[in-house]
């Protein structure tokens, strides 16, 4: 039984763009307030007071447009995957569409599947374009993730995102999709109920039956369907809730550290949730050479993983300099203390 997801027409990435807010807080500083030590990452990104999932998505989308060099009026869908929608009811994608000048001839919706929502949007865009329903579709993964103050998650929950414009494979695409595969089960490892501010998680239950089971099976399933082994890939980007999990998954699958490192940013920007693998892939595309193959595996609690195999094309050389690179945003940083962080995260009632 064929498990590989592949559209009738080959599709690729016409343009991509990332955005990471400039503020950072060190885990050490969070630990100072809550009396903790031994941290999962070094530091994480914090949104500015005037930033949210919509504004981050807008800048990422503008960067993707610069690289795609297309008229935004040709985009027939914008889908934003996020669990930090500015509105509980009212789409984020319409705000993005309006801000980049893509309205009104398009479809728009927000996707939710914890940290996997961004790659859900990518899967859908592949089908939309690959069936020739539309010429271009934009998929965005973005979050301004919140952890309950003092909870483990507060040390990693970060902000950032990336946008991908999907189009039919051509000389204009910077990379094309060889195929994708999704692996989903009902596993309640992390959730947030309606009207709750913060998510709850199953502590150690989030590891083995959740992250590892889905990431490993998705990666294996895709490689089996395509007839590849880790040796066939030049890079691998795994969902990165911390640094340990993706490195362990890589080890289990047989990927050496050097293939994982370029797309592993969680140690210095934190877990950008639905944005995490999309930002990791953008960092890899910023340096990859034509012909190189990348394995891309997301994970979303609840739970599931999407796996993609993409091959970099010649157009990357000409297009990567048309917009700021992922590291331009990582290098632009300003440290804040916990008091300012609390203001940025709107913890004060005034």
């Amino acid at each position: 039984m064929k498990r590989l997801l592949k559209p009738i027409k080959d599709v690729g990435i016409v343009g991509y763009g990332a955005y990471i807010p400039m503020y950072r807080i060190k885990d050490e500083e969070i630990g100072r307030v809550w009396g903790a030590n031994g941290f999962p990452i070094q530091e994480k990104s914090v949104p500015g007071i005037d930033e949210d999932a919509a504004t981050i998505a807008i800048e990422a989308a503008r960067n993707a447009l610069k690289r795609a060099k297309i008229n935004p009026q040709e985009i027939r869908a914008i889908w934003t995957g996020t669990e930090s929608k500015p509105y509980a009811v009212k789409p984020t994608s319409t705000i993005v569409a309006q801000a980049i000048g893509a309205t009104p001839d398009l479809d728009a919706a927000d996707f939710e599947f914890a940290c996997k929502a961004g790659t859900e949007a990518v899967q859908t865009a592949i089908g939309f374009v690959g069936s020739r329903m539309a010429k271009y579709a934009m998929a965005i993964g973005v979050d301004t993730a919140q952890g309950r103050p003092g909870d483990h998650l507060e040390f990693t929950a970060a902000a950032g995102g990336a946008a991908y414009i999907i189009g039919e494979k051509s000389d204009e695409t910077v990379a094309y999709f060889e195929g994708s595969y999704s692996y989903v089960t009902d596993t309640p490892d992390f959730w947030r109920r309606q009207h709750e501010h913060y998510p709850r998680h199953g502590n150690r239950f989030t590891g083995e039956p959740a992250y590892f089971r889905h990431v490993i099976n998705a990666a294996k399933g895709l490689m089996e369907e395509l007839g590849y082994t880790p040796n066939d890939f030049d890079y691998a980007v795994f969902h990165q809730p911390n640094v340990k999990f993706p490195l362990t998954a890589a080890k289990i699958l047989g990927f050496p550290m050097e293939k994982v490192k370029p797309g592993l940013l969680s140690g210095i920007i934190g877990n950008t949730y639905a944005g995490a693998t999309l930002v990791g892939i953008s960092a890899v595309l910023d340096i990859a050479k034509p012909g190189e193959r990348i394995l891309w595996v997301s994970f979303g609690s609840g739970a599931g993983s999407d796996a993609f195999s993409i091959v970099v094309q010649d157009a990357i050389e000409e297009k990567r300099d048309l917009a700021p690179k992922t590291w331009d945003y990582i290098n632009r940083k300003k440290y804040i203390d916990y008091a300012l962080y609390a203001k940025h995260r709107r913890k004060y009632i005034i």
């Binding site: 005037d50 504004t55 300099d321 690179k325 590291w327 331009d328």
Partner: peptide
């Protein structure tokens, strides 16, 4: 939502 201005982003270029 609306326009604001920030210092021009420094890029590797």
């Amino acid at each position: 939502y609306g326009y604001k201005f920030r210092p021009v982003l420094k890029t590797s270029k």
